[in-house]
């Protein structure tokens, strides 16, 4: 555990909590892509199946439970509790175009051809692109609430910090995981355009709106 890993995890947790609180406090999930949230719930479910087979640490186990719990709570709020506020008309990204090829890729490129390992690989690949429906939704409506941009910022920051963590681990522990690194780089790149808008607009007190 190094400082980048820890702040990365906390940043990830902050993103998840910000989104839950936003929906809970405003009693609305307007502007939030339910599809992205379903994908994240799928990511956590397929990745953390090792909860059933191996114990790493109390920290590890509890964070996994928190992530999974929050992911399903978010999906429940969007598709059940605050369903009336869900903006489904703008959430039109075709997720099967992500899930099907990624499922195929996880079968072809993995560390070990076993069910748990393939599901872990699937979750790593899927996480790298799971935010696309949300970004697509923002590009479609041309704007995002400021609180939504904070959510996206912490979610992107988390992956950027994980990249630093992997550089650290390569230098000080001497190993690396190619699947995680390639997917992590892809995931971080997807946020670059958003980071630029966040710094130039949101941090200067303006709402994030895209030019028409």
């Amino acid at each position: 555990m190094n400082i980048f890993r820890l702040t990365g995890d906390l940043s990830h947790l902050a993103a998840i909590i910000i989104l839950l609180l936003k929906i809970w406090k405003t009693r609305s999930c307007a502007g939030i892509s339910g599809k992205s949230q379903i994908l994240f719930a799928l990511v956590f479910t397929t990745r953390y199946l090792d909860l059933l087979t191996s114990f790493i640490s109390l920290y590890n186990t509890s964070m996994k439970f928190i992530y999974i719990g929050c992911a399903y709570a978010t999906v429940y709020m969007i598709y059940a509790k605050f369903k009336a506020t869900y903006d489904g008309n703008h959430d039109t990204f075709r997720v099967e175009f992500l899930v099907v090829p990624i499922g195929g890729l996880a079968f072809l490129v993995n560390h070990d051809f076993s069910p748990l390992e393939i599901l872990w690989t699937f979750s790593i690949y899927l996480e790298s692109v799971a935010i696309l429906p949300q970004l697509f939704m923002i590009s479609k409506t041309g704007e995002a609430e400021t609180i939504t941009t904070h959510y996206l910022f912490f979610l992107g920051l988390y992956r950027a910090l994980y990249l630093m963590n992997w550089i650290w681990r390569f230098y000080f522990e001497g190993f690396f995981d190619m699947i995680a690194i390639v997917a992590g780089v892809v995931q971080t790149i997807l946020y670059c355009d958003f980071f630029y808008l966040y710094v130039t607009k949101v941090l200067k007190g303006k709402k994030l709106s895209l030019p028409a």
Partner: peptide
Amino acid sequence: MLSNAYKDEL
């Protein structure tokens, strides 16, 4: 494939 080292991560 290369090492499978990051299973302790989230």
